Simulated assay, not measured.
Amino acid sequence: MSPKITDKLVTVLLWLSAFLIIGILLSFLVYLLYKGLPVLTWDFITGRPSDIEAGGGVGPQLFNTFYILVLSFGVAFPVAVGAGIYLSEYAGNSRLTDIVRLSTESLATVPSIVLALFGMIVFINILGFGISIIAGAMTLTLLNLPLLVRVTEESLRAVPQAYREASLALGATKWQTIWRVVLPNALPGIITGITLTAGRAVGETAILIFTAGTTVSRHLPDFDLFASGETLAVHMWYVMAIGLVPDRMEIANGIGALLIIVVLMFNLLFTVPGEMLRRKLTGSR
């Protein structure tokens, strides 16, 4: 077989594989949206859940999902960006940094149930937070932090070294170079990491079942950090596992469609402003 035929055959196989993966993903999304969109009424999105009667909503769970996510990223993002900048720009290559990178990668692969047990022991039993929003958010931070650190470091390393040298040659300090040149050019990769991490956190159940609980506050919105904080994903698990409501299938379908919409919103909310900020900082069009 000639090299040209081999090349064309491999190209066709790769395209078929790509279309197959996209087709599976689209069929999955279309099916979930087809089942769930009719359930997404205003009363369902903003209403309160019911344990016995049909027609309950997911308003508190939707609020808790965003609240816990914001709290988690409020802690994880500054730490992750700082750690990524240090590992990429200051630490250099040494045995210590290799150990730090290995530890970060190892933490990123830890099963969520292990982090759930760790969070329950540390934040609930030792620190006395109880089953609460703050305990769930802090444990979720442990899930998000390793991935954010690695994504930030790799995004910074992907910026060409010539950019740094040009900035330093013009008289900028190292920090000015990082802040004005390196970070803006690494922003797309960092935003991609934030989006992936946020999507993973939104769908997390094991950690939040053990730390944030399966009940919600009677007040909406409730910003009490020590209130119980059931999220959308946890409520879906609860309804399908031990729920007594007669319309639990409709509730689960509605939550599935709502989670998809939330993840798509995260992509838009992070990607569009991030690209605008990158253009403003770099002066590009």
Rank of each mutant, 00 (worst) to 15 (best):
T231N: 06
F270C: 01
M236P: 12
R48W: 11
L102W: 13
L69Y: 03
L20I: 08
N93Q: 14
N185Y: 11
G84S: 03
R285C: 04
T215R: 09
V10C: 10
P184Q: 09
P184K: 07
F77S: 01
F270G: 00
L20D: 05
R218C: 08
R164V: 02
V182A: 00
A241G: 04
V216K: 10
L281G: 10
I85Q: 07
Y31I: 15
V181L: 00
L232R: 06
I261H: 10
T139Q: 07
R218K: 14
G213A: 12
F77Y: 04
L33D: 06
R101V: 07
D222Y: 10
V10A: 11
S50N: 13
G229R: 01
G23W: 03
D7V: 09
V81F: 03
K4E: 15
A186F: 06
I178Y: 01
A83W: 02
I191H: 09
E105M: 05
L147S: 15
E275L: 14
V12C: 04
M120S: 07
M249R: 09
F210R: 05
G82H: 06
H219W: 08
R48S: 11
E275K: 14
I5C: 01
I113E: 00
A198Q: 14
L187S: 14
G56S: 02
A158D: 13
L71R: 00
V12E: 04
V12R: 06
M276C: 07
E165G: 02
L96T: 13
V122I: 12
L14G: 12
G57L: 03
G128Q: 03
E250T: 11
I113C: 01
F19Y: 15
S284Y: 09
L264I: 14
G193C: 06
L258I: 03
W15Y: 15
P78N: 00
R279T: 02
A166R: 03
V151A: 08
S50M: 06
S167N: 04
A227I: 00
L16K: 08
P38H: 10
M120V: 05
P221W: 05
I190F: 09
G254T: 03
T173H: 10
L225C: 09
D222R: 09
Q176Y: 04
S284P: 09
I24W: 12
P146T: 10
Y31N: 15
K280R: 13
V12K: 05
Y163E: 11
V239S: 11
F63N: 01
A76T: 01
G274C: 05
G82W: 09
V79E: 02
I251P: 07
L244R: 13
L277N: 09
I85K: 04
I131W: 11
P146I: 11
I178K: 03
A212C: 06
I21Y: 05
P188I: 10
T11L: 15
S155Q: 11
Q161R: 14
M249D: 11
V216Y: 12
I131P: 12
L9N: 05
A233I: 07
N253I: 12
A212I: 07
